[in-house]
Design a protein around this nucleic acid. Structure first.
Length: 203
DNA sequence: CCCGTGATTTAT
DNA sequence: TAAATCACGGGG
């Protein structure tokens, strides 16, 4: 019994969505085959007030246009000349808030993931970072703007079990946003405690 | 620690 | 136009 998450699931604040996404199953259909993993790490980007968000100050450009779409839209961007990052848009249309998916625990199509993640030699290297999981699942800008509620190649299924109690979720400072002043230290990064597929702690 | 790599954003 | 930046990852 696998139910895709409905629109109503996404139409909430970014931190609430970021927490709710933990334990759910991200699915990518590639060449008719399923690649999937359980979401174990997310970050919330709170919109126009959040100095770490691409939509800070109401910035609206070709790159971040999908952040202004309805909740449940994919926002995929390219950075550092070689990496993609995948976000799930939260809230409603014209509220530029989102949850960055930073790590998943691979569960389906693992061999196929190794084919793209040439430098990975263990399952915990496959999807333990925002750009790693995009490489493993072949997520690139072609998927920017896709509707996760209706799309056939990228979507999220309800998969959280009762075992994932609130007490097993940690909230820490987001990664790689040191420039964001008072927003740099807010506890907007959410992880499943002790899950080995969470990204390593850089600074 | 450092650097690749190039689209995007911001400054001039 | 030109310069700076970057929600990263891999190597030393």
């Amino acid at each position: 019994m696998t139910a895709r998450l409905p629109r109503s699931f996404y139409r909430r604040d970014a931190a609430g969505l970021s927490r709710a996404l933990l334990g759910q199953r991200l699915v990518r259909v590639l060449d008719g085959r399923r690649l999937a993993g359980l979401i174990v790490e997310t970050e919330a980007y709170l919109g126009t007030e959040d100095k770490a968000a691409h939509s800070y100050g109401g910035r609206r450009t070709a790159r971040n246009e999908s952040m202004y779409a309805d909740g449940g839209t994919a926002y995929v961007y390219f950075t550092y000349g070689m990496h993609h990052c995948f976000n799930v848009v939260a809230g409603r249309a014209d509220e530029p808030v989102a949850a960055l998916v930073r790590a998943i625990e691979p569960v389906e199509g693992i061999e196929s993931m190794y084919l793209r993640r040439v430098k990975a030699c263990r399952d915990t290297d496959l999807c333990s970072g925002p750009a790693k999981l995009c490489e493993a699942l072949a997520i690139d800008r072609d998927l920017n703007g896709q509707d996760l509620v209706a799309d056939e190649v990228l979507f999220i299924e309800r998969a959280r079990t009762r075992a994932l109690a609130a007490g097993r979720i940690a909230a820490d400072a987001r990664i790689g946003v040191a420039y964001a002043e008072e927003w740099a230290d807010k506890p907007l990064r959410f992880t499943i405690k002790d899950n080995p597929h969470v990204s390593r702690r850089p600074r």
